[in-house]
Simulated assay, not measured.
Amino acid sequence: MFFLFSLSCTNKDQVENSGVLGLLNAGSGTPEYFEFSNEAVNLNYKTYGDAKSSQDQKLIKESYLVFETGDIDKSYSNIVAVIKKYNGYIQDDSAEKDYYRIIRRLTVRIPTANFQNTIDDVSKNVEYFDTKQTTLRDVTEEFIDLEARLKAKKELEKRYLELLKKAKNVQELLEVEKELSHIREEIEAKQGRLKYLENKVSLSSINIEFYKTNSESKVTKSYGSKMWNAIVSGFDGLSTFFLGILYIWPFIIILIIVFFIIKRWLKKRKKNEANSKK
């Protein structure tokens, strides 16, 4: 009695036309013979393909909104009220401040059924959007495909479990358990991907960025700031110059001494030349 494993699928993620052809006739005179091949169990995709036309579209919806506001806190309160109204929540909330602007950024998750209503209500309090962008990604095909592959993998798992019960020795037991381990890993991976897609489909994302521009005159303040920076830089440069002199004072003294020696020598030489002419 022996097991013949002929798993000849060329792609691990490809379904799983491979299956189990089990001549499970234990107790009969015929030896138990288990062959695994591409054509062993024909998992018919037509059944799953027909379901695609009747299944609702799976859309991942995302939006990105940017606008200026005169009151950061008021805009934040209005947005929070809209989010609560439509049963959403804030996933990320951050704020920053630079020389010109105060910025608030929110990542909102909202039930997909309330996606457009949320955007419309937020827009009521906005005079003008710097950016207003919405994207839709259809993942229906991937969703159907994952469900089909997952069903095929679970069917294959059942067949291997049947083989596990019929294993007659440790070697056969280990071989079947090894294959079962691989199948279960693939099942968990596909279940994880399906869960991720279901979350993205059921809860849409809205990224909102709103900011307030400082009311002070940018030109006046900027020009005055530049003048002050120039004055400070001038003092810094002067200080650096004097510090540099202090660093090289021994060389300066040597140069002064050499200068006086040369000057004295030239003066003495000139005097000697004048005396020799007399």
Rank of each mutant, 00 (worst) to 15 (best):
residue 1 M to Y: 10
residue 2 F to Y: 11
residue 3 F to E: 03
residue 5 F to W: 02
residue 8 S to P: 07
residue 10 T to D: 12
residue 11 N to H: 15
residue 12 K to S: 14
residue 14 Q to M: 10
residue 19 G to Y: 09
residue 22 G to M: 03
residue 25 N to R: 07
residue 26 A to M: 06
residue 30 T to G: 08
residue 30 T to M: 10
residue 37 S to H: 02
residue 38 N to S: 14
residue 38 N to D: 14
residue 42 N to Q: 06
residue 43 L to E: 07
residue 48 Y to Q: 09
residue 51 A to H: 13
residue 55 Q to P: 00
residue 58 K to G: 06
residue 64 Y to C: 05
residue 66 V to T: 15
residue 67 F to Y: 13
residue 67 F to P: 06
residue 68 E to D: 08
residue 69 T to I: 06
residue 70 G to D: 09
residue 72 I to C: 12
residue 72 I to E: 02
residue 73 D to K: 05
residue 77 S to R: 03
residue 78 N to H: 08
residue 88 G to S: 04
residue 90 I to Q: 00
residue 90 I to D: 07
residue 91 Q to R: 10
residue 95 A to Q: 11
residue 95 A to F: 09
residue 95 A to W: 09
residue 103 I to G: 00
residue 107 T to Y: 03
residue 108 V to C: 10
residue 112 T to M: 03
residue 116 Q to Y: 12
residue 118 T to A: 00
residue 122 V to D: 00
residue 124 K to I: 08
residue 124 K to V: 11
residue 128 Y to G: 01
residue 129 F to T: 02
residue 130 D to M: 12
residue 131 T to F: 02
residue 134 T to P: 05
residue 135 T to P: 11
residue 136 L to G: 07
residue 136 L to N: 11
residue 138 D to N: 10
residue 139 V to Q: 07
residue 140 T to R: 05
residue 140 T to Q: 08
residue 141 E to P: 02
residue 142 E to G: 09
residue 146 L to W: 05
residue 151 K to L: 10
residue 154 K to Q: 14
residue 155 E to N: 09
residue 158 K to M: 13
residue 159 R to K: 14
residue 160 Y to H: 04
residue 160 Y to V: 02
residue 163 L to R: 07
residue 166 K to G: 03
residue 170 V to T: 12
residue 175 E to Y: 07
residue 177 E to S: 08
residue 180 L to Q: 04
residue 181 S to E: 10
residue 188 E to V: 15
residue 190 K to Y: 04
residue 196 Y to C: 02
residue 199 N to I: 00
residue 200 K to F: 11
residue 207 N to R: 05
residue 208 I to Y: 12
residue 214 N to A: 13
residue 217 S to V: 05
residue 221 K to E: 05
residue 224 G to V: 12
residue 225 S to G: 15
residue 226 K to T: 12
residue 228 W to Y: 15
residue 230 A to T: 07
residue 231 I to G: 11
residue 232 V to Q: 13
residue 234 G to Q: 00
residue 239 S to Y: 10
residue 240 T to I: 13
residue 240 T to G: 10
residue 244 G to I: 07
residue 247 Y to Q: 15
residue 255 L to M: 07
residue 255 L to C: 02
residue 256 I to G: 10
residue 257 I to W: 03
residue 259 F to L: 10
residue 260 F to P: 07
residue 270 K to D: 05
residue 270 K to N: 13
residue 270 K to W: 09
residue 271 K to Q: 15
residue 275 N to C: 04
residue 277 K to N: 12
residue 277 K to Q: 15
